[in-house]
Each structure stands twice: as structure tokens, then as C-alpha cells.
Design a protein around this nucleic acid. Sequence first.
DNA 1: CAGGGCTTTAATGTATACATATCTCCAGCA
DNA 2: TGCTGGAGATATGTATACATTAAAGCCCTG
Lengths: 220, 220
Amino acid sequence: MATENFEEFAYTAILGLILDNRFKPGDFLFETELANSLGLSRTPVRHALGQLVAEGFLEKKKKKGCYIPDVSARDAQQVFFLRETMEGMAAASAARYATEEDISFLKTLVAKESNRDNTLSKLDVLEINQAFHLGIARFSGNRYLEHYCRHIFWRSNVYVFFYDNYYREDIDYSALKTPDQHARVVAALENRNDEKAGNLMKFHIRSTYEMLFMKLQHLD
Amino acid sequence: MATENFEEFAYTAILGLILDNRFKPGDFLFETELANSLGLSRTPVRHALGQLVAEGFLEKKKKKGCYIPDVSARDAQQVFFLRETMEGMAAASAARYATEEDISFLKTLVAKESNRDNTLSKLDVLEINQAFHLGIARFSGNRYLEHYCRHIFWRSNVYVFFYDNYYREDIDYSALKTPDQHARVVAALENRNDEKAGNLMKFHIRSTYEMLFMKLQHLD
DNA sequence: CAGGGCTTTAATGTATACATATCTCCAGCA
DNA sequence: TGCTGGAGATATGTATACATTAAAGCCCTG
């Protein structure tokens, strides 16, 4: 992780705050405030915010500032529809290009999350989930596809977090179908069955969406 | 076009230079130089360059600068494969969501480029082509899909320009199949036939790629 | 002649001061 | 009362000075 400069530090720190759900949709992120809390000048913070806007994590009003994009049922639908397609492609591509190492990495992740002892915190679950999905994006071997998968994955996470915040009702993570669905995707990758891998991934994402959407449909 | 600030000005100016093919792959874009030539300080230029990097038009080496990404046969393949898929989706989606106005806008473009009088400069052709493809991306009604289409379209244009530069051999633009293929896509949109629109668009992009690739396959 | 390390240089990275625009809120008027 | 407009506060937008560092060239040595 060769010598990170302040811009990069600010970028990851701010992205961390966003992904950590420290702001709610519509909230403004003030350069001055962030700069103070990170112990930097406004310059690198401003640069980092610019990146986040360019990448679509934030929106911006001229001379006003950057803010967390609003959520809506329509937006959620667009996000998950696209995520389904993109990650479906990625999985299909990964079935062709992933190395044996790549696949055993994914297997490790699945093993961890399938752990029935339930020693996993919610944060652990999210982290493993992210590693799994972004891993497959990477193994697709297409850097552009990977880039878009990353982006839409993070954007979709806004909804996962949103759900978590407003509808938290102690979920039993070990009861979720996720690990099982992940395992089946990995099996398809291992068999180099691209079509099946793509379809299983699409199915998995759609089922995530439907779980959320039952709760979210009152939005706008 | 409410009061553009210097950052936006720098952004469009630099993007213009890139799309105008004023740099070749590997060339560095120096903040100081650009700032001077645009009559600005480095601050807004630097910000604009940051955006372009975040959006993937440029790459960056730490403490070294931003440069035009390299071209290669493998990269071209990835770019066009993805563009085919993305714009195919966009066209299919547009068949459902484009308004009558949207469609007549596209028809106007096709009419212009089908003009057999050949009064169109190469720049005109490129501009109409861009308006056509980005228009369909917009009419898909999915802002994320639009964003990705824009990006991959521009990235693919690097190859179109590259080809133009090194293999220019006065092309008779009026003889290209492009206007005809565009017209057929629009007809499918008009008939609200999403599957056909998607497939025609995919075919169109693939045929563009194949035309280029015949010339480019010696790369790397 | 080849190769490694110092020096120089030219670019980016950062802080800061100042300019400007937007929002708020309160006073003054119809 | 309700509207209008302007002053002030606050955050962004911009320029500039300075710090830092990667890399190219040069010299010195084996």
C-alpha cells in the first residue's frame, strides 16, 4: 500500500463514512467540516469529494455542496436491475477466466459465511459479501466491467443500509439464503459453466432485491 | 447553460481536447501547461483532471500526472464487447421508455447522416454519431445505464480516433453502412420492439468493431 | 565501458488567503 | 399581516506560494 497521500486518505475515509451509513440521503458533506475532522486542509478533501461525485456516490449542487443522493423505489429498481445484469455478465465471464486460485479464494469466503456457529458480526457479513461480489467482478478479467460492477454494487448498498437503518429487526443472518446461493455460483464457476454461473448470480441478486423491496415499496 | 464556472469550463475544454484527438495514448496532460493554455490557475484544471480520471478517460501515476490510457487489442476487445452489451440494453430499454419526441429527434439525426450530398465533414459525422448513441442511452430512462454507456462510448472512441490517425485513407463516409444500421434501430424503437432494437444495436456495434479490428489486430 | 547513486529539475501535492455566490433572517414598507 | 429586499453568515470557488517527490541526467567508480 505504497505511501498513500492525503487525497487518497481523504477519499477512502469519506467513502468509509458513506458506506458506514453515517449520513442519510439528502445530507450535505461539508468540505470544511470533513477537513477539520480528518485533520487536513480543504484541498485534498475537495479533490476527494470531486472524485466521489464523478463516480456517482454523491451528487452536487453548484456553490452549495455535495450530498448523499436520494433514494426512491424507482431508483432502487434501476440500480438492482442493472446490478443483476452486470454481475450476471461478470460471473459468466469469470467462469471462463478465473484461475483456480481465484476460485479457492471465493470458496474460502463462502466457507466463512456458511459458518453456523454464528460468530459473525453484521459487519463481518457485509465485508465477506463485498469481497465475494467484487471478487467475481475482478475475476471477470474485464476492467471496465469490473469498474461498473463495483460502482453499482456500492450504489445498491445504499439501499441495503437504508433498509438496515429503518427496518432493523434483528435478522438471523445464519438463516439467510445468501451463503447457499453464493456456494452455488462458485460451484458453477468451478465447473466452468458460464451460462449457469451468470443465471445463478442474476437469481441471487434478484432475490436480494425482492427481499428489500417488500419493505421499501412505500418509498415515493 | 447557467453560469459555468472555471472547473466546468476546464472539464469540457480538456475533454474536448481529448475527443479531438490532440493527444496520443501515453501522452501526459500537464496541469501547468493546460492551466496556461486555458488562462486559468492550476486549481480548477487539477479538479477537472481528477474528474476525468475518476470517470476513466485518463489514467494517473502518482506524483507524475494524468495520461491518455494505452491502447491494445485486448483492451479494444473488452471495450467493444462491453459497449455492445450496454448499448444493446439501452436500446431495448429505450424501445419501452422513449417518448415520441425522443424518437423523432433520433430520426432527424439519421436523416442528416443519410444525406447523400456528402456536405458533411468528418467532424459532423462524429458529432451526429455521438448524439445518436448518447441519445439512446439517455432515452433508456436508467441513469446508471446511461452513465456507463457514455463512458464506454467515449472509451471506444479512442480506438476510432486511433484508427483515423494511423490508418487514414480517405474514407467515403456516405458509403458506410452506419446510417442504414442506425435507421433500422430507430425503426425498431418506433415499433416498440425492444428485443429487435437491442439486437440491431448490438449488431451495429459489433460491425463497427470488426471494421476497426481488421486494421488493429497487429496491436500488442 | 557499465552501473549505481547523487543532483537537479520539473511536475504534482498541500495549505492558505481571498473572492464570490447562496441562504437565512430580520427590518421596513404597503 | 404578508411581502420584499438587503445585510450578514457560511460554504464553495479560485489563485498562489510553498513542500515534496519521481525521474532524468551526470559524475564517479569498479
